[in-house]
Amino acid sequence: MAEKPELKEKKTIWDKLQDLPVSSLFILVILSMSIIYVYPIGLPVPITQMAKDTFNALNTLPSGSYIWIYNAYATGSIAVHEPGLIAILRHSIAKHFKIILWSADTPIMLFPRVLEKIKPDLDRANYVYGKDWAYLYIPGGEPIWANILQDVWSVVTVDKDGKPFTQMPLMVDIKNRGPTYNSVNIVFFQTTGGETVDGMVRQVNVRYHQMTGVRLIGQILEIMVPAARPYYNAGNMDGIMNGGVGAAEYELLLGRPGAALKVTDMLSLAQLIVLAYWAVGNVGFFMKRYSRASVPKGGG
């Protein structure tokens, strides 16, 4: 029995537009991002109200305030979070805040990269480790944050390198001021996980905002902003740093252009390419539908 020849529908131009190979998009994005990084064109970075609020939450605090920074990012989001942390640290040092950082293991391993960049700021402002700033190794989630704000000494008594709190005037001062929340004026967190935002709002804003006026700001990935924005609209968060774009805005507001601003051209161009592909695919989809609809229906 002879095989029936397969009927192959000829691909039209609209089919081809709909099925542009994904690999071509990746190649184009990677190439264009690389080229524009070497030859930047300086596309504008508009400053949003959310970025201004984030900046002002820190900027309007008096000198000597206590900022607690929880950085929970790993290697995958260095490009997003590292510039944000550097910008916040530079701003805090310029405002002569007392800085307490805390995190789990990976951010501690990544911190030397940050320290290298903020060292000139620390030296210029005569910051002394243990007296003006400290870094604590505290793994754990929401229950631990609740304990930290209540009494940090009950959670841990040494810094990330094992130095006892008793030898650190900053931590001794915090203990002498009573419950730890008396020494928390603003909390800045960085995360790649949505549950951190919810937990921070519950443990910092809801519990202590009315009691002590503590402010809460955070840098989260762009993808998390739509879900976290209701907290900002409701006043649970004083500001949100919108991923790498937010870090670039912060650098502009601070007047200290850094790593985040360097990659904004890459982001803009890559987005334009994705948008162009999206438009081309849609043109193919609608034109195919239109051409089908316009074919007269015949019988037999």
Binding site: G76, A79, E222, I223, L267
Partner: peptide, 19 residues
């Protein structure tokens, strides 16, 4: 919007590797 911001996030994260 969430999908769009997802693309921004991934591009942003990859920008660090290109750098």
């Amino acid at each position: 919007v969430t999908f769009g911001t997802g693309i921004t996030t991934r591009i942003n994260q990859y920008a660090g590797r290109i750098e």
